[in-house]
Structure formats: C-alpha cells, structure tokens
C-alpha cells in the first residue's frame, strides 16, 4: 500500500518522466537508424560523447545553449562514423556499434582528464531550470508530471508526436521505411538507399546527442566517466519492445523511467537496504522486457546494401 502510494505520487511520476527522457531520446535515435536498416547498438557511445561535449562546451563558453549545440553535433559525428563503417565499409553493424562505444569511452575519458578536471576546468554553468507551462501545469496531478519539467524533457515529449508524423505520414518516412524493409525495391523506384541510410543514422545521432545533453545540462551539472551507465542499451530494449514506433518506445521508456524513479525513491526511503539492490532494478527490468518483446524488426535490418 505504501509502495503504491509512492508509485503514484506526482513527485515520483514527475521524476519518472524526467529519467525516461534520455531513454526515449535514445530509442528515437535507434528508431531512425534501424527503420532505415542500420542496426544501432552505438546509442550508448553517442550519448556519452554528447554528454561530455555538452559539459565541455557549456563550461568553456559559459552558455548552456552552446552545450546543446555541441551535444547535437558530437552525437551526429559519432553517428556519421557508425554510418560510414556500416554503409561504406559494410562492417558488421554490431561490431561497428561496439567500436563506437569503445571509442566514446576512450575519447571522453581522455578529454575529461585533459580538460574537465582542475586546474583546467573553468567550472560548470549549472543546469537548465524547470519550466512550468502556463495553465497546463496547473492541472492537478498530470500538470506536475507532464508540464512542469526541464526543457529537454518537454522537447522529448513533443518529439514523439513529430517523429510519429514524420515516419508514418511523410514521403521521407515512407522512403526511410522502404530502404529498411526492401532496399532493392526502393532502389528500383529511384530512392537513393545509401543517402537515406546515411541521413537517418545521422539524424538519429542528434537525438542521442540530445539525450547526452539531458545528462549534463539538465540532470546534473558535470560530466563523470561512463555516466550513461547503460542508458543507450536500455533505450534499444525500449525501441524493440515498442516495435520501432515512437509512441511504443516512449511507453517503454516511461516504464524504465518509473523503475528508475522508484529506485531513487526507495534508496532514500530505505537507507538500511543496500543501494545496489535498487540500482539493479532497471537492468533486470530491461532483460525481462527484452524477453517479453515479440519484435518484428524492419526486414532488411543489419544487412549492408550492395548496389548491383
């Protein structure tokens, strides 16, 4: 009973939506990439790179907005590398993703120790403040949960609708899905398979970048080594569970957000129980969710396209 109260408290759910944000954004990144036929296990690495870049840029320019820009660009850059490796060089996409993740771990670690620790560290500029949307945020319960959030959380919620529209109701979305389902057919009707795949993987990279920005510009105000702690992979599980649709992925991400919020609340509520026990919760849940998923992936996913 007490647990249920904790679960449905507006504060817990507000926290759930906030912590669901990097996971939802990460799964949007995977959505664009995988809908076009490129498997993406590199979301984690893109997110991590972006989190570091955001922290770096905002600290050295003194502006959070430059931080956002740096995050988007660095996410896109890592995605571009994944695209080149898997499209141009037909590298196995699972391994290409692993390369990106390792590279991100190494580069962010090196840059962090070179530029983001004293004596070089110019100091953090803080985080984005919570925004209360007029009128809407005053709705009881719902208002606090959905409309009293940081800007990146709010952007994420809007993005779900935008992406749903783009993927299912625009020519771009149709072409993206076509190259992911049947690249040969798409090619025959004049769609540039390579261009569509490059573009979608890189667009995806910017969403992973935004997820990284959330970590260092909205959640906490400084970068730490390996701070993504598996969120990129959880995002992938959310995407698979959500069957490669933005609302499905958002729903799954919110489940993870809930587990995460609960985990944080429980740690505070039960200090006598080892914190690690609660920290395992999202990871265990990911395995269960991935096992329950009955995925129907895009038909041509993971296969490099070789033009005849």
């Amino acid at each position: 009973m007490e647990l249920l109260q904790l679960l449905f408290a507006a504060g817990t759910l507000q926290l759930a939506v906030a912590t669901a944000t990097p996971i939802a954004l990460g799964s949007f990144a995977g959505l664009f990439s995988e809908r076009s036929g490129v498997v993406n296990i590199a979301i984690e690495g893109m997110m991590l790179t972006a989190a570091m870049s955001a922290s770096f840029a905002s600290a050295y320019t003194g502006s959070l907005y430059w931080g956002i820009l740096a995050a988007l660009l660095s996410g896109a850059l890592m995605a571009a590398l994944h695209a080149v490796l898997s499209i141009r060089f037909s590298m196995n996409q699972i391994i290409s993703g692993t390369v990106i993740n390792f590279l991100a771990a190494g580069l962010t670690g090196h840059l962090y120790q070179t530029y983001l620790v004293p004596p070089h560290w110019p100091g953090s500029v803080g985080t984005f403040q919570e925004i209360s949307i007029p009128v809407l945020s005053r709705i009881p319960w719902i208002g606090q949960i959905l409309f009293q959030q940081g800007p990146i959380v709010l952007i994420m919620l809007v993005l779900a609708f935008v992406i749903h529209y783009v993927i299912f109701y625009t020519p771009w979305g149709l072409r993206t899905r076509a190259v992911g389902e049947h690249p040969e057919a798409a090619d025959t009707v004049g769609i540039n398979v390579y261009m569509m795949r490059y573009a979608n993987v890189i667009i995806g990279g910017t969403f992973a970048g935004l997820a990284g920005a959330w970590l260092t510009l909205e959640w906490i105000d400084n970068f730490t080594i390996g701070m993504t702690t598996g969120r990129g992979f959880i995002a992938l599980a959310a995407l698979i569970f959500g069957r490669w649709t933005p609302f499905g992925a958002l729903g799954a991400a919110l489940l993870f957000g809930l587990a995460n919020a609960l985990q944080i609340r429980l740690q505070i509520g039960f200090p006598q129980v080892p914190a690690e026990l609660f920290q395992m919760l999202p990871y265990v849940m990911t395995i269960i969710i991935a096992a329950l998923a009955r995925p129907i992936p895009p038909a041509a996913i993971g296969q490099p396209y070789e033009k005849e």
């Binding site: 390369v99 390792f102 771990a105 190494g106 580069l107 670690g109 090196h110 120790q113 070179t114």
Partner: peptide, 10 residues
C-alpha cells in the same frame, strides 16, 4: 590519461 588505451582498443 590511461584512457588513451581505450582509444587504442577501439
């Protein structure tokens, strides 16, 4: 930084 080794690895 020791992280150079991770870059090698990648």
């Amino acid at each position: 930084s020791v992280h150079i080794v991770s870059i090698f690895r990648a």
